Each structure stands twice: as structure tokens, then as C-alpha cells.
Amino acid sequence: MNTQNTGFVTQVMYEGSCALTKRWNLAIHLIINVLSTAILAASNYCMQSLVAPSREEVDKYHAQKRRLDIGVPSIRNLSAVGRYRTVLWFVLLITATPFHLL
């Protein structure tokens, strides 16, 4: 069904009831939104857990007259929690950002 010679060919992907298509569209979008919200919430929880300092880390920093944030998500704590937890935190940041944006 190419009416102009543009080099593109159109194909019908689905031919059927508009009402059924609208219901499927709604259901699929609801599932996508629920899953993305769950993934975002889980990622946020894990990021907060990774950046939370342990009792030993708090004692060590307080002995050095330095402070850590406790009870709030804080990027400042990344220097205190160790390389492994910091790398995991950044991996979660990079993978969760598309869910924030989309």
C-alpha cells in the first residue's frame, strides 16, 4: 500500500477490534508501570542500604573527628563504605536512571 515512491513499504501488524486493542494497550502499560515502579523502589532501597555506614565505620570516622550521615541517603558516605559497596551503588545508579527518566 505504498502511495508514494519513498522507498518505504507499510505493513499491517494487527487488524481487529479497536476496543480489544485499547484494553491490551492499557493492560500492557499498567504492567510496565507496576514493574518499573517496583524495580525503582527496590533499587532505591538497595542504594540506601549500600551507603549506610556500619557501627565500625561510624566509630572509625568519629575517632578521626569526621562525620557520617546516619539515617538519610547520603553520597558523602560513599568514601567511608568501601570500594565494593561504592561500585555496587554506582551500578545501581546507572541501571536505575533510565527508569527515572522514562
Rank of each mutant, 00 (worst) to 15 (best):
M1C: 07
M1L: 09
T3W: 04
Q4H: 05
N5Y: 10
F8A: 06
V9A: 05
V12G: 10
C18A: 12
A19P: 03
L20E: 12
L20F: 13
W24R: 07
N25A: 08
L26M: 13
L26I: 14
L26F: 15
H29F: 11
I31H: 02
I32M: 00
N33R: 08
L35I: 08
S36I: 13
T37M: 12
L40P: 06
A42P: 01
A42S: 06
S43Y: 11
S43E: 04
Y45R: 05
Y45C: 11
C46Q: 11
S49A: 06
L50Q: 00
V51W: 08
V51L: 04
V51S: 15
P53C: 01
R55E: 02
R55N: 09
E56G: 04
E57K: 09
D59Y: 05
D59R: 04
D59P: 02
D59T: 11
D59V: 11
K60W: 00
Y61L: 02
Y61C: 05
Y61W: 02
H62C: 00
Q64S: 04
R66N: 10
R67D: 02
R67P: 06
L68P: 02
D69R: 15
V72H: 04
V72M: 07
N77K: 06
L78R: 11
L78I: 15
S79C: 06
Y84T: 14
Y84N: 11
T86Q: 09
V87I: 15
L88M: 07
L88K: 03
V91F: 03
L92Q: 01
L93I: 09
T97R: 08
F99G: 01
H100A: 11
L102A: 09
